[in-house]
């Protein structure tokens, strides 16, 4: 059962809180830009153009969009841990609303906030020589939204296993950072050692970034067919959504 009012009010709360905290917006936007320009420019001196003629900055760009989504979607979802710590979650849990509505509300607010930030990063694309056409922009936005939803739902599952704010650095170091490095964001999967390559194929972010590369640098180095990217994103989104409702319901 989905209560639209509940979904709406949970999303509204996250949006209000996000935009009230201006410094949060600035700092979450700064991270991907620092990576893109500082790491990207440094690395592009080491890495020659690949056989398809794509320079490193352009190769990296979809990865940075993926990174933006990864961080902001996970952070948005693990605000559930904050709500646990500060008690607000109890207010939601004793209300006569279905757990699915709560989870959906949380997942959608993560989706909205991280899609928005990813689209803001898209604006700098001309600076690194990517000039997307309308069709490419629309396609990217769709992939961004699906990927954001998928990672947000994953974030809810992660959040339900932790109780307090101290777990933040655990999540950061053992989940978020490995997911980022093993996603093909910074280097093509083809060049990775076999073990890492397999690990990366288990990461939904890999398919999101690959999907964005299909759209933004269609003649570049790609790992999977586009339809597979979309299929994996949609199906993992559905699985994560129901799994997160389940773990949330179980009360952990």
């Amino acid at each position: 059962m989905i209560e639209l009012k509940v979904v709406y009010v949970i999303v509204m709360r996250e949006l209000i809180k996000f935009f009230r905290e201006k410094s949060k917006l600035v700092s979450t936007m700064a991270r991907p830009l620092i990576w893109l320009f500082f790491v990207g420019m440094g690395m592009s001196r080491l890495v020659p153009q690949d056989i398809t003629g794509t320079d490193y900055m352009r190769f990296l760009f979809p990865g940075i969009i993926g990174m933006t989504i990864l961080f902001s979607a996970i952070f948005s979802s693990i605000s559930i841990i904050w709500d646990k710590e500060f008690g607000f979650l109890k207010e939601i849990l004793v209300a006569p609303v279905s757990r699915f509505s709560i989870v959906l509300g949380k997942a959608l607010s993560g989706t909205l906030l991280s899609s928005l930030q990813a689209m803001l990063i898209m604006i700098v694309s001309p600076l690194i020589g990517i000039y997307p056409e309308m069709g490419q922009i629309a396609g990217s936005v769709l992939v961004i939204i699906v990927l954001s939803f998928c990672i947000s739902a994953l974030g809810i599952i992660i959040a339900s296993f932790y109780e307090s704010l101290e777990s933040f650095s655990m999540i950061m170091n053992f989940i978020v950072m490995p997911m980022f490095f093993l996603s093909g964001a910074m280097y093509p999967l083809k060049k990775l050692p076999l073990v890492l390559k397999y690990a990366a194929t288990l990461n939904p972010l890999t398919y999101g970034i690959d999907g964005l590369r299909h759209i933004l640098i269609p003649h570049g180095m790609l790992d999977f067919p586009f339809y597979l990217d979309i299929f994996v994103l949609l199906s993992t989104s559905a699985v994560f959504l129901f799994l997160s409702t389940y773990v949330f319901e179980r009360g952990k």
């Binding site: 709360r13 209000i16 008690g87 607000f88 979650l89 109890k90 207010e91």
Partner: peptide
């Protein structure tokens, strides 16, 4: 049917 005031506050302090 119920309203609850828990021992520890459960308000959203930012709102």
């Amino acid at each position: 049917s119920i309203g609850i005031v828990f021992q520890d506050t459960t308000l959203d302090k930012d709102l």
